[in-house]
């Protein structure tokens, strides 16, 4: 089959780019262990208030785990509990969130923490809070009339 030289050039370029992107994805998933925020952990949405760790929302120090703190959030129309929380600078934190009613968003503006919280599921994200400042948490899934007022705040302090 005759193929123009240029055609070979851009086919090789395209296949190489695809391989690079897929390799990055594969390393991220299978070597670094990155996974979707909601990864098969479930909860009864009716019993969120009485189920650990959601019976005590907020920041908690933990021992013997890969992370130093667990930051627990409960979302419901149209607020997060806690409404404001302080995290020490440099702490490795597992953010754990769920919702009592409908689907909400959990976006910490300006960071990689951006998950959907779905009724019946637990969403998690592990990260190191290595930049001080005030970070706004927003609901970015339309959840009802008070959606635009649904916020919380994380203060990363020394």
């Amino acid at each position: 089959m005759h193929m123009h030289k240029f055609e070979k050039v851009w086919l090789i370029f395209g296949v190489a780019a695809l391989l690079v992107f897929l390799t990055v994805l594969g390393v991220s998933a299978f070597y670094l262990g990155n996974q979707p925020p909601s990864c098969l952990a479930t909860i009864d949405p009716e019993k969120v208030d009485t189920t650990a760790p959601f019976n005590e929302p907020g920041l908690k120090k933990v021992e013997g785990k890969d992370w130093d703190y667990e930051l627990v959030f409960v979302a419901q129309a149209f607020a997060y509990t806690p409404g404001e929380v302080e995290v020490p600078l440099g702490a490795k934190v597992k953010v754990i969130a769920t919702t009592k009613d409908v689907i909400h968003g959990f976006e910490v503006a300006g960071t990689n923490i951006n998950m959907m919280v779905e009724p019946g599921y637990i969403s998690e994200h592990v990260t190191v809070f290595d930049k001080p400042g005030e970070y706004l948490i927003l609901c970015n899934e339309y959840c009802g009339t008070g959606h635009h007022m649904m916020t919380s705040k994380i203060k990363v302090v020394e």
């Binding site: 851009w10 370029f13 780019a17 960071t111 990689n112 809070f129 930049k131």
Partner: peptide, 27 residues
């Protein structure tokens, strides 16, 4: 055609790399 293909191709690669480094820079 070659010029057009690489115009689009380089644009995709540069935006991808930009977003990737933004991801690495944030916590």
């Amino acid at each position: 055609t070659l010029a057009s293909v690489f115009f689009v191709g380089i644009f995709i690669v540069l935006t991808w790399v930009g977003v990737y480094f933004l991801y690495l820079d944030r916590f």
